[in-house]
Simulated scan of single mutants.
Amino acid sequence: MMAIRPKAFLVGAAFLSCLASSASAADAWVQEAESRLASTRTYPRSAQVRKEAGTALIALQVDGNGLISAYRVAQSSGSDILDREAERALDRIGQFSPPPDRKPRAVTVRITWPGPQDKLID
């Protein structure tokens, strides 16, 4: 029977704790990016008239300083108008806060346009 050495266990636990902390910081960073994107979006009048709503998933490449280096619509909102607005919102932002570890990363963020009944009017 193999015994776990206390030192190895403590180092392993510290490593797992560090990983969990990094993961939660990365999750918080993505949530912050989604929130910023949501605050920058507009609801185009043409989409309002057509009563279009939906959620687009946007794949982003972000450098260590938070600069958006590339993006694409990974999953359409179901509306060409709203998908173009998602791209315009990213152009307006241009840069997020730096990722927690300041390493370039690829992430997917969502941007949602509720239906007209939800009163998202700009």
Rank of each mutant, 00 (worst) to 15 (best):
M2R: 13
R5N: 15
P6Q: 11
K7L: 12
A8E: 15
L10I: 04
G12N: 13
G12L: 11
G12P: 06
A13V: 09
F15W: 14
C18R: 09
C18N: 08
L19M: 15
A20V: 04
A20N: 12
S21P: 04
S21W: 14
S21K: 08
S21Y: 11
A23P: 06
A25M: 10
A26C: 14
D27F: 07
D27H: 09
D27C: 02
D27T: 04
A28H: 08
W29E: 05
V30H: 12
E32K: 02
A33C: 13
L37P: 07
A38I: 02
S39K: 12
T40D: 07
T42S: 15
T42Q: 14
P44S: 05
R45K: 14
R45H: 13
S46E: 15
S46I: 04
Q48Y: 09
V49W: 10
K51F: 01
E52S: 04
A53H: 07
G54Y: 01
L57S: 14
I58R: 05
A59H: 15
D63I: 00
G64V: 02
G66M: 02
G66N: 07
L67R: 09
L67C: 05
I68S: 04
R72C: 06
R72V: 01
R72D: 12
R72T: 09
V73L: 07
A74N: 12
A74Q: 13
Q75W: 03
Q75L: 04
S79R: 03
S79V: 05
D80V: 06
D80A: 14
I81D: 03
L82T: 02
D83R: 03
D83I: 01
D83G: 04
R84G: 03
E85G: 02
A86Q: 03
E87V: 06
E87H: 05
E87M: 10
R88P: 00
R88Y: 06
R88H: 05
A89Y: 10
L90E: 06
D91V: 03
D91N: 11
R92S: 13
R92C: 08
R92D: 12
I93R: 06
I93C: 04
P98Q: 06
P100M: 05
P100D: 07
D101I: 05
R102Y: 08
K103P: 04
K103D: 12
K103R: 13
P104I: 00
P104D: 09
P104S: 11
R105D: 10
A106T: 12
T108Q: 11
T108R: 13
V109F: 06
V109L: 04
V109S: 11
I111P: 04
T112C: 04
W113H: 08
G115M: 00
G115F: 00
P116L: 02
Q117R: 05
Q117N: 07
D118L: 07
K119I: 10
L120Y: 12
I121W: 11
I121L: 13
